[in-house]
Design a protein around this nucleic acid. Sequence first.
DNA 1: CGCTTTTGCGACAGTCTTGTAACAGTTTTA
DNA 2: TAAAACTGTTACAAGACTGTCGCAAAAGCG
Lengths: 230, 230
Amino acid sequence: MATIEHPLILLVEDEPAQREVLSYNLTAESYRVNLAQDGEEAIMMVREDSPDLIVLDWMLPNLSGIEVCRRLKSRAETRAIPVIMLSARSEEVDRVRGLETGADDYVIKPYSIVELMARIRANLRRVRPSTVGMVLEFQDIRLDGETYRVTRAGKSLQLGPTELRLLATFMERPGRVFSREQLLDRVWGRDIYVETRTVDVHIGRLRKALCRQGGDDLLRTVRGAGYALG
Amino acid sequence: MATIEHPLILLVEDEPAQREVLSYNLTAESYRVNLAQDGEEAIMMVREDSPDLIVLDWMLPNLSGIEVCRRLKSRAETRAIPVIMLSARSEEVDRVRGLETGADDYVIKPYSIVELMARIRANLRRVRPSTVGMVLEFQDIRLDGETYRVTRAGKSLQLGPTELRLLATFMERPGRVFSREQLLDRVWGRDIYVETRTVDVHIGRLRKALCRQGGDDLLRTVRGAGYALG
DNA sequence: CGCTTTTGCGACAGTCTTGTAACAGTTTTA
DNA sequence: TAAAACTGTTACAAGACTGTCGCAAAAGCG
């Protein structure tokens, strides 16, 4: 299991073989993957899990890829999620139509998986600057996504998996206030049922870990709202 | 600190997009990369830099991949360098022809980056003689890619094949945390079915071997994530 | 100030992860 | 061919980590 928040990708593809290959490669690249088999399921899963990026097949049963894309792009909440269209059609016309519907990128089958991966990386970088394997820094705290090492003022800190993910979440957006619900969502996962007060306890533990070697308390409590870093 | 001689790979590919993606990925895997855009440049760079492995596109301007391969394989000095052919053609005929010209391996586009990397690793491992250096070092551990001898603090260690590959994987990227799945992928191979717990056992065995003659335990367990060296 | 609401945090029991010995089957070596 | 080395799996124990609760402390509020 990965400890630091890896980007979640929604893969919408009806053909099983394709789905498996893509899913395998995405997982191998350390993305979390959600699968949808048709347009309606896709729309539903976007609402539920709000993925970081969507890989969308053009031809779909039920609700075509274009239509799915159009709908996603017409709603403010989902508009920002990058969509990469996959299509067997190679006509320029279609490329244009694909982009017109608001897709952020467009890959023609048969495509190189390497290329697709590159586009995914590029599009993720665009919306979400700090990704897997990156080093997050805030003041004298340093979190290395590759070695999973956390240091404060040069001294190594001992964190449990949950504390680590919690810290990573804060460090991806220093200063931002996260509600307990948002934290549960991001750190624990969308479908796990945990008491909201549990967040408090882990915040406490993280605080203790961060201050053990001295230094200010960098986790700010925002009464009635949640917590923030710095 | 460690002095690591990373294998040099010559990448021969004329299409800029492909080139960039591959180059990026190779670099990310800690290889040194040389680029050539056509057959003639490739031949020249082989003479100059004698790379450890060549990734060669089939379709090239100027001098085709097959021809380049044939020439390299007909000269004694360059014969031993592994060549991996990339091709968009999928016909069995071509595969055979590719190997006939002396290519050591053959990957059909669109390929999985994971697979290509695996083949590169495999081919680099295979060539014992004529592989330049490829000595991995970390602290007082030394892994000689030619003789497959491992020493710690000068004393020779006895490792089984699996332990050796495991150690090599870690030493290629000291500090990086590998999940059990990633280790299975890299050390055991992607299509072998093995329990993930098996990794633990081999880590234990490697640990024991590394510490037998004394010294710290250099294999770090990252709870919930995997293992890392150092 | 009292009173109410929210947060901090020690304690604890249950759960999950990891280390490792044992073992049986296979492969390699002598 | 027999012995030795190596592998993958399992079961179990130790210990790390987690979630919850309860009460104390702090913060808002009139």
